[in-house]
Design a protein around this nucleic acid. Sequence first.
DNA 1: GTTCCGCATGAATCGATAG
DNA 2: ACTATCGATTCATGCGGAA
Lengths: 285, 285
Amino acid sequence: MNIQKNRHMEILANVICGDCRNELPKMASNSVDLIITSPPYADRRMKTYGGVNPNKYVEWFLPTTKELLRVLKPTGTFILNIKERVVNGERHTYVLQLILEMRKQGWLWTEEFIWHKKNCYPGKWPNRFRDAWERLLQFNKTKKFHMYQDAVMVPIGDWAQDRLKNLSQTDKRRDNARNGSGFGKNISHWLNREKAYPPNVLHMATECSNKDHSAVFPEKLPEWFIRLFTKEGDLVLDPFMGSGTTLVVAQKLRRNSVGIEILPEYCEIVKNKVSPLVMDLLKVG
Amino acid sequence: MNIQKNRHMEILANVICGDCRNELPKMASNSVDLIITSPPYADRRMKTYGGVNPNKYVEWFLPTTKELLRVLKPTGTFILNIKERVVNGERHTYVLQLILEMRKQGWLWTEEFIWHKKNCYPGKWPNRFRDAWERLLQFNKTKKFHMYQDAVMVPIGDWAQDRLKNLSQTDKRRDNARNGSGFGKNISHWLNREKAYPPNVLHMATECSNKDHSAVFPEKLPEWFIRLFTKEGDLVLDPFMGSGTTLVVAQKLRRNSVGIEILPEYCEIVKNKVSPLVMDLLKVG
DNA sequence: GTTCCGCATGAATCGATAG
DNA sequence: ACTATCGATTCATGCGGAA
């Protein structure tokens, strides 16, 4: 990390009050490094956006994703948090159809992360268990997107604590057999390792205590993706800002951010939570 | 459990060697209580199944699902274990398309369980993390399917002891406020339970130590679904039997089973693992 | 009999090289 | 240009033998 650079970095958090379908067209093309959002699920928070039937959800959402594709940098990433509702005893298919239609728009469907909600809400139904997971769909504009994997490494599994200290002989021999001349370049890498790259399943407890907004994700979730797909000074966009978790986290991590929200009361709340302009004190000094 | 009934119950495990596309039409309609299978994934298991091109996968599989719909009882369930592979940097869409096409055949897409594989395949890539989950798609013929939830209840400590007990005061208060008639009461009921219903995320490690065959799913996985969707004496079908985990577990749980497998060597292995007819000794006495 | 340690090996994916 | 094969990368688990 370049300290000199940080001293002169100003971090902006911009709250735009309005419908993202109207506001996104005003944004510059190829300007956003990461879009992360949790849009109103069909028939839930949809009422604030006009109450769209699940069968109309894809049709309603596609104009927005088209604009998102335009504003995203070629190296950027779009993380979409979504889950299909149960309609008439079945999982609705709007998420599946949305993925297919977004690919027609030009999006690449790179990956699907699973958010495992560890403390999902209690409940019981005769033909269904509690829903403890949501989709985190990763879309990209090109295959050459930025990914900073080291920023989200996790402590290695428990198994290692007793066992890694004596490194597996297998790994040594595997390496030696493959490149006869090679010595253990990789082995030393292993020996010093205390952290591992995470898999595509995220275990995060939901935050139930937020009274301001019904559909928030926990701070850890945007934090993980912001660390993974952006660096300091980059620009993060949340077109369905809600209670503003994305902006708060982005500011904490020194990323610029733009949040768009249709409900004025949420806009006011978020404006009070974030400082529109954060300037490093050292810059003045 | 009715002991008298068990004394006179004969349990059959039937191994059919052949292509399920040829063998399924010979089976009676509305005869199976649970279908659980892990079909060959696209372009995987090339040596054993010849590999199916991802772009042809849906077309290849649909005739089979049509027959499965026919043989399933109206009260039965179909559990499909599948995962899309990465093609050209993107997740392929054949699973999404398969779900949409199966619904056109008449299937109801009731639920999607997540199998979280704790010991997923290692590896590192610049733009992707390790894949640690697979889909377990639940399809039904009607909304009135059998589900024996009590059979898969887990000790509460196993999954949520601390989380549920520490359920935030906010939630308890919120619930009481929402409907005075005792939703909060249900929570206290929950807290006092020793067992709880599981959610729709299953945590199971893959079994990697089996030498006879390439590992399929661990025994715990079919066991969980067999307990959940069948009772003793019911009929379980696995049209892509492979190494026969489903049949072995079904027999252990005293369910009748039919397994179809195209490779003779697997058929022989499974025939040696299961007894074609198990009769309770007490019946003779 | 426990506990500990060595070991093999998985429904993987990417990039480079070869036909 | 497009497909087929191969090497490199890497984490968690259960088994079996040893202390």
